[in-house]
Design a protein around this nucleic acid. Sequence first.
DNA 1: CTGAAAGCGCTTACAG
DNA 2: CTGAAAGCGCTTACAG
Lengths: 308, 308
Amino acid sequence: MGRSGRVTLTDVAKASGVSRATVSFVLNDDPRQTISAATRERVMEAAQDLGYVPHGIARALREGSSRIVVLNVDWGMEGNFSRSYVRGLDEELAEHDHILLVRHGHSIPEATQKVLDTIAPRAVLRLGEAYMRGDEPTEDDWENGFAANAALQIGYLADHGHTRIALAMPDHDFPLTEARLGFSQEAARRRGLPPLERIVVPRPREAGAAAIRAFLAAHPDVTALAAFDDDIAQRSLAALRDLGLRVPEDMAVIGFDETEYGSLSTPALTTVHIDAEVLGRIAARNALGIGTGGLAPVPGRIVARASV
Amino acid sequence: MGRSGRVTLTDVAKASGVSRATVSFVLNDDPRQTISAATRERVMEAAQDLGYVPHGIARALREGSSRIVVLNVDWGMEGNFSRSYVRGLDEELAEHDHILLVRHGHSIPEATQKVLDTIAPRAVLRLGEAYMRGDEPTEDDWENGFAANAALQIGYLADHGHTRIALAMPDHDFPLTEARLGFSQEAARRRGLPPLERIVVPRPREAGAAAIRAFLAAHPDVTALAAFDDDIAQRSLAALRDLGLRVPEDMAVIGFDETEYGSLSTPALTTVHIDAEVLGRIAARNALGIGTGGLAPVPGRIVARASV
DNA sequence: CTGAAAGCGCTTACAG
DNA sequence: CTGAAAGCGCTTACAG
């Protein structure tokens, strides 16, 4: 045992009377080696007895990268999407002997570089990445991807007879904003709806109310707000209340990416629930370079409450 | 340059015509060495030109631990406390050439062990740690710590004439629950108030309403709810509304650890804002074993809105 | 079937 | 003031 108190490969080798190489072969189940069952047994037991745990840093130095995947998260984690995505990613990674580490609000390139230099992670991911490739969405995306979820939101409004719909957007751009806008517009088009209007709903509460009042004065025919996310939906609800408008009678509001707060507002918020656990698992497998066979994203679903 | 395309210490040594040791001494500003200004200059320049970046993994293997601090977060990050704490921790760490990595929902010991084995972080922290030591709070805690913030909440209610106060608690225990309860009770005692009642406010919304109705039937003299956090306060607000009770006329409600949602409810939520950035910085310095001189936690403050 | 050796990139006694 | 050497703990050609 080294000075550090750590049990090393050398200890296991000594205890089982073989070389370090052999121990490594056995413990990593190296398919290119043929180790006798007896030796294998002896090594495994010694490792077990000694409580040997491979030193990730040493392994990383040798292998070129550590068994870590870093996820950059640059916005809130309130919604169901983020939570479930992180859970799926974490679990799938764990099943393949890797660990997930999250980095908040630092997706600027130089910070990422620093992370790379410091721990040489196997991969650096970014939350929502798959959703924000610039490329055109595939038909799959319209089946069960981001585009489908955007369409679900617009469609629900259309199902309830709304034709003049406005997109309620946050006051500063998220990486996802552009893609989302495009999907929603396309969904409206496919549905035979006129182009969606746009309204930015800023904070604080009074500013949100002022923005909505001004918007409504210019667009009196709009009857429904499709919010970028549940946060914006909540801001809209508060604004409409302050303006003395009834929801959904005077104006319907639908959220996106369910948060815990939607059920607590009055009226409770109708929204889109997105379970991204499978997306997280797929991201994990992609990062590790293993197949994603059989894993298909779960389509979003409407959580019908009282605001539409 | 190695096969990996990485510029190593050896490259810098070659380029500047000195040994690797000397390069290391210069770059790390080793105080035990005296390097001539000329050599120093030459090395720095070569490193700069080549774009040398030390390999964190190699350094970690040599030094015994990597320049990483891991923070375990096992509950939401909605509140101002978590956000500001993480920001402070991150920034202070960055200023000392370390990086922060967050781990969500995995503070079980064996997972922590795995992280340790994999990246040998300098330290593994846990959000709220400082707040949940079992030990008695010091007088400092009553000055500007968790205890003080708990007292601030109760005190604000007392200032508004409330004497019969109930603590609104979450339906499952957080690590902090015990400590918080104790502080609040002690604050009430110091304030000359009778012991605080306790009520658990569960989800979903209907269950919360039922719980509060039952509670009020048993404790008709209670006039104010001091919530464990803003989430519980929001549940309480929704429940009271469903019961047809007016806030604050029939029942006052005060939150804790401001979230973005408090301003959007009706009535808007009065709460305690806790800026934990300095706490994060102190935690960073403690983790790195450097002095925290001059850093004092910022006391919380009341955000007065409409619910008290 | 197994072992001796090289090497990942760094830091730091140690010797000059 | 500077350099040669050891060593952190591992994996993997290579040789037997």
